[in-house]
Design a protein around this nucleic acid. Structure first.
Lengths: 132, 132
DNA sequence: CATGATGTACGAAGTGATTCGTTGATGAGG
DNA sequence: CCTCATCAACGAATCACTTCGTACATCATG
């Protein structure tokens, strides 16, 4: 048996991330749940969702409860951890390792509400105190 | 002939992004330049770099000056535009469309210097005034 | 028990990215 | 003119991801 620590888990692919999104939202789901949430309009087949979940289970990205006929899947990685993972990946590859460069771009480009800006400012103040 | 607007350009792949990084840094470069900058320690072959640049040229990601025997390549997409592209992609796929969520994660996780925090705060103040 | 609906398992095909070996052209030095 | 180094072109192999068809198991219902 191969034991995989959380940090060893492979980075989810495009399709896998979409599935994780569904599981994060719902908490858990069967193949049918995932298929209906993602692939119905796509025209994507049921077995496509199934295969993806099987592959993801093989990689350790989801847990499976097979005590019922329709197996129930849960995300084996937290949303926060995964977001962090993608984020630092991108900082390295696209922003020369500078997180603040990324932040400046993000603030400059995308829209934020006043409430969100306030929240960011609060965090900023806290960081400022800590970076003594 | 197919004309491609900047917004039509495909998102650079992993390897392509690394090559763009070299071209952004140097301004321009031959296949040999790129190969030495990226693939020497990797053990990556010369023709690998060449093929990638050919593919990228086919996609419109780089411009080529073939007036010399050793063709000279330049990035056909700006660094800023590409960063923005990756950023909004990620906001959609990983952060449910919320840029501020991404910013909070980025500030919380990665390190920033006092100087950088100051810069961010300045932008924040400006945004605050504009988001009247 | 027969049947239809629903489920998992599995292999194979399709796709795009990457890597590399080979070929032939070009140019420099003897 | 010959030879060697350097270069672009091209096709093929490989790899990972995705999609799908088919086979077979299970269960409910009549």
């Amino acid at each position: 048996m191969t034991i995989r620590r959380a940090t060893d888990l492979p980075k989810p692919t495009e399709a896998e991330l979409a599935i994780l999104g569904v599981l994060w939202d719902r908490g858990y789901g069967t193949v049918r749940d995932v298929h209906e949430a993602l692939y119905l309009d796509d025209g994507g087949g049921y077995t496509t969702a199934l295969k993806l979940l099987q592959v993801m289970h093989g990689k350790g990205l989801v847990e499976r409860d097979d005590s019922q006929r329709a197996h129930v899947f849960r995300a084996a990685v937290s949303k926060e951890r995964t977001q962090k993972r993608f984020l630092s990946d991108m900082v390295q590859r696209v922003f020369d390792g500078s997180a603040s460069q990324l932040v400046l771009h993000a603030l400059g480009t995308q829209h934020s509400t006043r409430e969100e800006l306030k929240e960011i400012r609060a965090l900023l103040n806290r960081l400022d105190r800590e970076t003594k």
